[in-house]
Design a protein around this nucleic acid. Structure first.
Lengths: 154, 154
DNA sequence: CTACTATAATTAGATATCTAATTATATAGT
DNA sequence: ACTATATAATTAGATATCTAATTATAGTAG
């Protein structure tokens, strides 16, 4: 019974929460905007970043580079980011926000503000504070495993 | 700063955990098998189900019906499930496991057994027991929101 | 300077997932 | 019985995500 162990149940709940919360959040965003794209916009503004390579962005969000290429292509097509060749490295590129991207981020934040009171009623700050450290520990361990290539058990 | 509130950090961690755990689990599965497909196989065996409609399966896993159609199509192509018309309802179909499907589930379980000791070292049963109830409550509330269509705030 | 290796980005091909629209069958109401 | 509504499944079209393979540029070693 693989789904019976508590750990599996935990991953199951986490999967569903992820799916539902992502969709609910996106339902408030402007038409066409996605969580993945918003995350990129927000990253630049929050951290006050000017330019960053696709590889660095992929690493920051813990997704693969092809995935980031894919998202950035769509964002550039929508005029949200601008991408130029890195003058110091012929292989690399540099991504930056456009004014449109900055405005879009503002719109997303304004639109999603609707959810704050709602989410507060779903889970209290105290509860979040109670479970977050454990989840972070788990995430860090899972992440360290990712680099360990295959699962070797002797 | 939308990503700053604790709740957002929580969803962020949950998203990463979901992504990592899914990939790690799949890395142990036979080539081509996915978590989504394993979940279907396991559902039938664990609950001792003989036949179930795509709609019921979609509902059980909280995914949309087109998504389930898509997964079942691939599973049928791989010979893991068999699908027949529902004799009592001309609109519906009935899905059941094939012997191949049952064997595949066994293989998956055997293969994933590797992870048990590993996961146990990542998060203890006590920790799981501590955070699971809160996550379940959150999931239930998010789920109830899904039917509430749009977020109406007056 | 040449050859090997490492890194950046992309392309190719696949799965999972969603929303919106379509097709077919049931069910209910008049 | 006929019409209107509801439900089952699918198709169409899109995004996010992955792995494997490709292309181009850097860096290192001899």
């Amino acid at each position: 019974m693989i789904a019976d162990p508590p750990v599996f149940q935990l991953f199951n709940e986490i999967g569903i929460i992820n799916q539902l919360s992502t969709k609910i959040f996106e339902s408030a965003l402007p038409k066409g905007m996605t969580t993945a794209q918003f995350t990129v916009l927000n990253h630049f503004v929050r951290l006050g970043i000017d330019e960053k390579s696709p590889a660095e962005l992929a690493s920051a969000f813990q997704i693969t580079r092809p995935t980031m290429t894919s998202t950035l292509t769509r964002m550039a097509r929508a005029g949200l980011v601008s991408i130029r060749a890195d003058p110091n490295d012929g292989r690399a590129k540099l991504v930056s926000l456009t004014d449109t991207g900055r405005e879009m981020r503002e719109s997303c934040i304004a639109a999603s503000a609707v959810f704050f009171p709602l989410l507060g009623s779903f889970i209290s700050d105290a509860e979040v504070a109670e479970i977050l450290p454990t989840l972070i520990r788990l995430r860090v361990k899972l992440d360290s495993m990712r680099d360990a290539k295959a699962v070797t058990l002797d």
